[in-house]
Design a protein around this nucleic acid. Structure first.
Length: 789
DNA sequence: CTGGCTACCGTTTTT
DNA sequence: CGGTAGCCAG
């Protein structure tokens, strides 16, 4: 097919080496901005073009749909290849594909449905209720976490070690939950992985089949894999398989949800990796930004070791801004961002990053009041919206009437005279006979029972009436017959919801087109073992077709899912975008976590305060702090040209004013790369408190204290009230001369800020928030505190 | 069944 | 402080 040399043009030596590795296990340590995706896709293209593998013989796994799509898009731009036949997708997407093909062996119904996070939680709640357990003692969220955790350790209920009564009951809930899911024909996300793993583990013939088939396996973001995902990989990959694991231990920020960075070292050992290739040349950021990132991450131990470098020159210094309050921080950001915009930076190239979602509020209101377009990531996703979930529940009942989760969601929505008492009876009856709610309607008498029968009739009617219709027609019919449209037409805020339901019809239409459900659609062959034939995908009228969910036929019968079932799967596996107005040029607001993988011309990292970033809940152990540091590393490396770091002396959190110390991360950055925009204070709090008070008394508000000279015509809405704690402190200030907000120095704990004062004379005590030691109560007659101002 | 009230909670999240 | 979940009264 060719030597693939055209593909290799422009790669640097390390990238070239990675792309052209021999067929053996290898580990690529890919630094931020080092061209990781390019290496992955070029590797696949090169393998195909040099006929080392057929399209059926490649598997590439990612974590997000976005990453999978990007890989597919780039790949089809490189080669005229039918990407639909390739096993490129998310872990869960590939599991879904596998289980659709082997549903019988996996013990699932053919059209099993997938529970999203919300469905899973309500399913767990139902189990806890059914077992008549106390929700105080068995908190659904925690139980859910327990079950997911067990599954990610490969444990079924019988495998979970039990040492106490609490665990014993948790295991019983787990068992009952499993039974319920099985009865209803649904699986949660962890189950997709575990089922696949178990089937591969237990069925030698199947395992051999797939091991022989996938001659090249590529895994993206390897540092984020959990135990089960690694075990899963070992099932698909023979010990001598050509597995390319790509990852960056410095960007491991998901340990809190089970990711095991240690999988990288395990992989190196267990797969006998001969080559570890480091991609350290960064194509994204200027020198000062990379110096900062390198310097910071150097403070972590247990690294595989990697230093980013660039040939772009030092660029601008990293700008550091100290703010009096979160409020003035927001003002400063707004003004600075506006200035950037005026100087030619597109708004969508400006990112405002924060550690926790709660921080977005102040910034949002500042941007909103100033009328600057912005976009917040991380809200409700499309398929998670209540009205959309209602519609999907009807569709799921049409497909599978034993889906109790869906049944309960819509049996009385819109209301049709089926109250709590009726449902209680129905659930009791179902529980006793071990049947679904649908099957148990006969057991309920009276008016409620009649209404239940009528509801079943409604669903049956929909199923019959939509037989043979297109997906679009099915959904339109359901929206009318169910009464959803009518219901929202009369509701006051219903217009938006109706719009979303119409959008659902559009999404279905787009899905059908994309998946090739049209009249010319042809089921894919189950397996392709043939030699390196490049497919004729483009010729078949599927130019650059990017499949999110595929129509994997049953391995034996070759039967494929109905468009409806496939669409429901799609909805569960891909929750959709979280905010509209994507096209607009708007400033991007998001948590550091959701910024991973993205890049911007200008980045603001906000709220760099001890307790916030690094977050106090993460600082109990060294691992937690190191993860926070990696998070900071991820944040820094998002910036191409300009990076701002900012922190506040005071911040409103949970309705209380907190007095903060700047983040320890500032001490871990190279002074030479930084430029302080505000004078460097030795201590924090006291000077500010005084100035704030004076400004307040003058009636000029906070902005005149800090933002002097930076006002570009902006008018503050109203001066914020003086934090109550400060006012209280004025009165309480006594003999020792301390006030809340006062900066102090302690010989052992270092610099801190007084946050509470109590007692007088000998009894006087203060709570002081210290940088790395956190808040401490001190007896003022004993503790030697020096005032810092 | 709906709406209004209270109590509680508050790190990060994809599939 | 602000959001939400769950409960009770109308």
């Amino acid at each position: 097919m060719g030597d693939g040399s055209a593909l290799l043009r422009g790669l640097n030596p390390e990238q070239y080496a990675a792309v052209t590795l021999p067929a053996e296990a290898a580990l690529i340590l890919a630094g931020a901005g080092s061209g990781k995706t390019r290496v992955l896709t070029t590797r696949i293209a090169w393998l195909l073009q040099t006929s080392q593998v057929s399209i059926g013989g490649v598997m590439a796994v990612t974590f997000t749909n976005k990453a999978a799509k990007e890989m597919l898009t780039r790949l089809s731009a490189m080669l005229p290849v039918n990407v639909r036949g390739m096993w490129i997708g998310t872990f869960h997407g590939l599991c879904n594909r596998f289980l659709r093909a082997h549903w019988k062996q996996a013990g699932l119904p053919q059209s099993f449905q997938i529970l999203d996070a919300g469905d899973t939680l309500s399913a767990v709640k139902r189990v806890i209720k059914a077992l008549k357990l106390d929700e105080e003692r068995f908190v659904p969220k925690q139980v859910n976490w327990f079950i997911a955790g067990a599954k990610e350790n490969g444990q079924r209920p019988k495998d979970v070690p039990v040492h106490d009564g609490q665990t014993q009951t948790m295991v019983e809930i787990y068992q009952a939950y499993e039974d319920q899911c099985q009865r209803e024909g649904v699986v949660d996300f962890a189950e997709l992985m575990l089922r696949t793993y178990e089937l591969m583990r237990d069925d030698a013939a199947l395992r051999e089949h797939y091991r022989r088939r996938f001659r090249h396996i590529l895994v993206d973001e390897f540092q984020d894999t959990n135990r089960l995902q690694y075990a899963w990989l070992k099932m698909f990959a023979a010990p001598d398989a050509s597995v390319l694991a790509v990852g960056d231990d410095d960007q491991s920020i998901y340990a809190f949800r089970g990711a095991q960075v240690g999988n990288m070292a395990d992989f190196e050992r267990e797969f006998r990796v001969k080559q570890v290739i480091k991609l350290e040349r960064n194509y994204r950021s200027f020198g000062n930004i990379l110096d900062s990132a390198n310097h910071l991450i150097g403070h972590n131990s247990r690294r595989l070791g990697k230093t980013l470098r660039t040939e772009a020159g030092p660029g601008e210094p990293v700008r550091v801004q100290e703010n009096a309050s979160d409020f003035s921080e927001a003002q400063w950001i707004l003004e600075e961002a506006q200035q950037l915009h005026r100087s030619g930076v597109a708004r969508k190239e400006i990112a405002l990053l924060y550690r926790s979602n709660a921080q977005s509020r102040v910034i949002e209101s500042a941007l909103f009041n100033a009328g600057i377009p912005y976009r917040v990531y991380g809200g409700l996703r499309f398929f998670e919206r209540a009205e959309v979930k209602h519609a999907l529940a009807y569709l799921r009942l049409i497909e599978n009437c034993n889906d109790d989760t869906s049944y309960l969601r819509v049996v009385n929505f819109p209301t049709r005279g089926i109250g709590a008492r009726t449902l209680e009876q129905l659930q009791d009856a179902a529980r006793q006979t071990g049947r679904s709610l649908w099957q148990s309607v006969g057991a309920v008498g009276g008016k409620g029972g009649a209404n239940l029968v009528a509801f079943n009739g409604l669903i049956d009617g929909m199923r019959n009436a939509t037989l043979g219709l297109t997906l679009r027609e099915i959904i339109e019919h359901m929206l009318e017959r169910s009464g959803l449209i009518d219901f929202y037409r009369t509701e006051k805020e219903g217009a938006d919801r109706i719009e979303n339901l119409e959008e659902l019809v559009n999404a279905a239409e787009a899905f059908v087109t994309q998946e090739g459900f049209g009249k010319d659609a042809v089921a894919l062959p189950v397996d392709e073992f043939g030699p390196g034939q490049l497919s004729d995908g483009a010729a078949a009228g599927l130019p650059n077709a990017v499949a999110a969910v595929d129509l994997t036929p049953d391995a034996e019968t070759g039967e494929i899912m109905s468009p409806l079932a496939a669409f429901l799967t799609h909805a569960a596996l891909e929750a959709g975008d979280n905010q509209a107005q994507a096209g607009q040029d708007a400033i991007q607001l998001m948590t550091v976590h959701s910024a991973k993988g993205l890049e911007f011309d200008a980045v603001f990292i906000t709220g760099l305060e001890e307790g916030l970033f690094p977050h106090e809940n993460a600082m109990s152990d060294a691992d937690g702090l190191e993860e926070e540091r990696r998070l900071m590393y991820v944040a820094i490396t998002r910036a191409r040209q300009r990076l701002y770091l900012s922190f506040c002396q005071t911040r409103m959190l949970h309705g209380q004013t907190r007095y903060n110390v700047k983040s320890r991360f500032f001490d871990e950055l190279p002074e030479s790369a930084l430029k302080w925009l505000t004078p460097r204070n030795q201590g924090f709090g006291s000077g500010f408190a005084r100035e704030y008070q004076q400004a307040w008394e003058r009636g000029s508000g906070l902005n005149s204290v800090v933002g002097a000279g930076r006002n570009n015509g902006w008018q503050p809405p109203a001066p914020p009230p003086v934090p109550a704690a400060m006012v209280a402190a004025q009165a309480k200030a006594s003999g020792h001369g301390l006030k809340v907000g006062q900066g102090v120095f302690h010989n052992k704990f270092g610099e801190g800020v007084v946050i509470t004062l109590e007692g007088t004379g000998e009894d006087a005590r203060a709570q002081v928030r210290f940088g790395r030691h956190g808040p401490k109560w001190l007896a003022l007659s004993i503790a030697k505190l020096t005032l810092v101002d």
